[in-house]
């Protein structure tokens, strides 16, 4: 019974929401360009598919590139920060400053430096995603169990042994938490990126479509873009969650099924 509830309850709440949506249209009588009906949005998804599908693929690709850059770059920064207390004290505040800087202001600068299109979009996605990876991975690398470090010291473990056999696996759950957060941010980063730095000739992703539909007040189509963006997000999160589960399910509390 419980198993079915997982599907039944959201279906009921979803139906209620759609019902309310129609009720608002019927009672309020808003024109289509203010509030299109769910059916119109679905139609827009179909009629605009020749634009939506390639745009979604581009955005998905940009999200992957930006995500990989953020995970790779973020881990590298974390490794440096965790390498010594001095490095961390010297640089961590500046990492925070980078994170606090409103990215949107930097976009014109990115465009100047990297040009419009994928390079700038990647930079923006990186900017949005890298921090959770850095913060979590650094935390994981510096919080290795003290007794385990002593155990390795007792065995005269080399630096590489200590890193690969102890510190890195110990930091893995932390790292994966960062990766999970980055995964939820990456599609948003990519859409924001090509909204701000995409053009028809360089990179027409979902963000560029938004610009396009906005100028023509094609509201149903805008909702369709949101729907597609949401789908990309789901695929991304599902993939990242799978990796998280795959790597940790044997041993880590976060991935264990409740014991009966």
């Amino acid at each position: 019974m419980k198993k079915h509830l997982i599907w039944i309850l959201p279906t009921i709440t979803g139906s209620v929401i759609i019902g309310l949506w129609y009720a608002i249209i019927v009672i309020g009588g808003q024109p289509d360009y203010v509030l299109p009906s769910p059916w119109q949005i679905l139609q827009a998804c179909v009629t605009e598919r020749h634009l939506l599908v390639p745009a979604a693929l581009r955005t998905g690709f940009a999200a992957i590139v930006g995500f990989v850059a953020a995970v790779g770059g973020g881990s590298l920064i974390a490794l440096l920060l965790a390498s010594s207390r001095w490095v961390k004290m010297s640089f961590y505040p500046w990492v925070l400053v980078m994170q606090m800087t409103p990215l949107i202001v930097l976009v014109p600068i990115f465009v100047l430096w990297f040009g419009e299109g994928l390079p700038s979009i990647t930079a923006i996605t990186f900017g949005i995603c890298f921090f959770p990876v850095v913060a979590n991975t650094t935390m994981g690398l510096v919080s290795t169990d003290k007794n385990l470090l002593d155990l390795f010291k007792m065995s005269n473990a080399s630096f590489t042994q200590e890193f690969f056999l102890l510190r890195a696996p110990y930091a893995l759950p932390y790292f994966l938490t960062g990766v999970k957060i980055a995964g939820t941010l990456a599609p948003i980063g990519a859409i924001t990126g090509d909204f701000l730095a995409g053009t028809a000739s360089t990179y027409a992703g979902l963000g560029y479509l938004v610009q396009n539909y906005r100028s023509q007040i094609m509201t149903a189509e805008l909702f369709a873009v949101a729907f597609v963006g949401c789908l990309i997000g789901f695929i991304f999160v599902a993939a990242v969650n799978f990796v998280h589960w795959y790597l940790l399910h044997n041993w880590h509390e976060s991935s264990l099924k409740a014991e009966h």
Binding site: N147, L148, N156, A157
Partner: peptide, 25 residues
Amino acid sequence: FIFQEATLLPWLTVHKNIQTTMRLH
């Protein structure tokens, strides 16, 4: 050295945990 907590590597099986010190040696 035997610590107050078991101080095992949670990502390794019992058999591999027993081998940790030997592998380091």
